[in-house]
């Protein structure tokens, strides 16, 4: 097996995982019409955990994390986020969504608003933060993702990597307790992948609870404390990154790893 992108000998930074449960998924099933996308998913995420979810396309990994903030609804089982049970109650859903940040493959920034307005919109309207305060907070997070000088531009004027970092800053402005990443680097040029991954690594080091669907195995080795492999809507294998990459148990995992790492 070829070496992963990031040196595996570098010890991941010490990041505490607490006993507190952030997300609890029990016997969750989802269907698209008659197609059974997710089957008996059981997953417990503790506060401070960094989980990487990988798997072939169509394995349901994006659907899984989109269920956590109810962008997709599940038909069976329980999902509990931060102690709140996800039900069809709109109040609950909006509450959970405001606590859970999400970054998309295509960024989904609002093109008619400036970078700063993108970041302050939700705090002002959902959290009712005064505008001044929201702008200060937004500038703080934009500095953190290293693009404060672009604050008054529109998303279309930024590069893909910058847009994705703005998307991360926009989520952070809501002070989320959990961050979901849905293939955040898949739509980026190779050069820009690093700047986004660096931002995510920094976030992980600060102890953010993260669930990340990605094909960046280097990232998984650097920051994840658990890697989950999915296939056909099921969790096939999960383990610590070192064990997962060096000593995969199931044949399906071995095949997958050989395909993505072996070129």
């Amino acid at each position: 097996m070829a070496d992963p992108a990031i040196d595996a000998n570098v010890t991941p930074p010490r990041m505490e995982v607490s006993e507190e449960i952030a997300v609890q998924i029990t016997d969750m099933n989802k269907w698209y019409g008659s197609f059974h996308v997710l089957r008996d998913i059981n997953l417990t995420v503790h506060r401070g955990e960094r989980i990487v979810i990988c798997g072939p396309s169509g394995s349901g990994k994006s659907t899984l994390i989109r269920c956590i903030n109810a962008l997709e609804e599940h038909q069976k089982g329980r999902i509990e986020v931060d102690g709140t049970l996800l039900s069809s109650d709109l109040k609950n859903i909006d509450k959970i969504r405001s606590e859970v940040g999400m970054c998309f493959q295509h960024f989904n920034l609002f093109p008619h608003l400036t970078i700063l307005e993108n970041c302050t919109l939700a705090p002002i309207w959902v959290r009712k933060t005064p505008k001044k305060e929201a702008e200060q907070a937004a500038m703080h997070f934009l500095e953190k993702v290293k693009i404060p000088d672009q604050a008054n531009k529109y998303p279309g004027q930024l590069s893909g990597g910058q847009q994705q970092r703005v998307a991360i800053a926009r989520s952070l402005c809501m002070k989320p307790r959990i961050m979901l990443f849905d293939e955040p680097t898949s739509a980026l040029d190779p050069e820009m992948i690093k700047e986004v991954l660096d931002t995510m690594i920094e976030l992980a080091e600060e102890g953010m609870t993260m669930l990340c669907v990605t094909h960046e195995m280097g990232f998984a080795q650097a920051v994840a404390n658990r890697v989950i492999f999915m296939d056909q809507g099921q969790i096939v294998e999960q383990n610590e990154p070192k064990e997962f990459f060096n000593n995969p148990k199931s044949d399906r995992t071995k095949l997958f790893l050989s395909q993505i790492l072996g070129h």
Binding site: S98, F104, N108, F110, V126, R170, M174
Partner: peptide, 9 residues
């Protein structure tokens, strides 16, 4: 989805 994910109603 971007709007929903930020908790906007």
């Amino acid at each position: 989805e971007g709007a929903s994910s930020l908790g906007l109603d």
